[in-house]
Design a protein around this nucleic acid. Sequence first.
DNA 1: CGGGTTCTTGACTAGTTTCAAGCAAAGTGG
DNA 2: CCACTTTGCTTGAAACTAGTCAAGAACCCG
Lengths: 248, 248
Amino acid sequence: MVQPASNPVPCRDCPIRQRPCFREFTPEELAFVQSFKVNELVFEKGETILVEGTKTAHLYTVLSGWSFRYKLLEDGNRQILNYALPGDFIGLQGSVFENLEHSVECLTRVRACVFPRDKLWHLYSSYPDLAFDVTWLASREESIIGEFLANVGQRRAQARVAYFLLHLFYHVRQSGLAEGDACFFPLTQQHLSDTLGLSLVHTNKTLKRLYDLGTFEWSAQKLRILNEERLIEIAGQQPSPPKVRPFI
Amino acid sequence: MVQPASNPVPCRDCPIRQRPCFREFTPEELAFVQSFKVNELVFEKGETILVEGTKTAHLYTVLSGWSFRYKLLEDGNRQILNYALPGDFIGLQGSVFENLEHSVECLTRVRACVFPRDKLWHLYSSYPDLAFDVTWLASREESIIGEFLANVGQRRAQARVAYFLLHLFYHVRQSGLAEGDACFFPLTQQHLSDTLGLSLVHTNKTLKRLYDLGTFEWSAQKLRILNEERLIEIAGQQPSPPKVRPFI
DNA sequence: CGGGTTCTTGACTAGTTTCAAGCAAAGTGG
DNA sequence: CCACTTTGCTTGAAACTAGTCAAGAACCCG
């Protein structure tokens, strides 16, 4: 069950905002964001935040937890588009188009700020720098999905897996959630295979090969990068480092 | 050689803007867009409009001609991300990030309006509805690339080709450039294979199979859809219809 | 007309999926 | 707390899809 958070945090004191990966806000921007925020919700693991094909009345900023965006094909296959970590923005597409073209599901319990769609217009008319930030975030999504497309379209299984593991690890690290060369990692192999366009079995065998090469460890939802250089070499290219981003 | 257009058109009289696929502008918006536009350029077939990894000083709106966005991998492979037709906006990413993450190359001669990057800020601060349009366009790009990712990640060669042919045909038709069930189609099979993540040879064989089924014809840069129902059936899903979009 | 690009085809090889079965870990309810 | 169920992971073998190589044909451009 989705629940309102018991102890919502004022934006000014938001612990996430302090992180160096986010650009700083002026007091006015902060005040607006505070007024933009109407609620704070908690979704449980496995719950669906947004559903493909529906209209949404809300936008979300993730405060904690992991979720992923995906499309369901008519034959039942699933393509995962991207993963959302704390600080990421969810549901913009639903506020911009008539209806959503993907769903969002929680990998863990997720706590998120809620913004009403109809106030987005106020943001655009009064806070052009925030409006620009929203565009920036949309562009960033596009850029990440473009990287994934190149990954899936042009790389073989082993390179594809190596590239994605690094990409996601870099994203986690930039969000301030890594501990050295390790991080929490709540995906299953099924998620990996739906992200990479590989079968589950082949994903498993490919992971084993990379594991046997001593490049990483993964168990009990913990991922540890053991040989980053080697992974980059196998991937054929280093995933682009995440950028400092706005946090709305 | 890139050349300034010999007979630039005032935005108000732009023949593209009249098309029903674009939303209408107010006179104020129109006046701003006119002042935003600093030039009109003509790029020849094969020329590169934007280069991955560079900063760009400009944004473009395509007036005529075809181009495509792509990423080059370190092993020399190319992943095509999307095709830009008349009315499409190019180079937003370069104006929003430090530098571009893809290149843009012309498939035909391309005529385009040029907008300076630094005036984009003025657009955001004074024309929030246009700012919203820019975000809309960025979201649309993301949405299309997401569809491509699902196509490449989840479909087999035959379905993948069928889906893409329909997708692109719908895009052309929405732009007002189709003649019934046929349209101009300047891609080579190499472009198709770089879009779909298939080898050139396999693309060719897959096309032949679809051709032998009587689903389409393609020669002399002309594509004709002969059996749309059958293509949809083979694709497993109908590509989503293009939306009415802003034209800046 | 000639040279380069693009298309086509067959034979062969490599990569990936599917099927099937067993195992391990985590969650559930009496 | 322990059987039971479910979910996720692992492995091998067989089938199939897609990639590579090679070479010739067709087409286009200057």
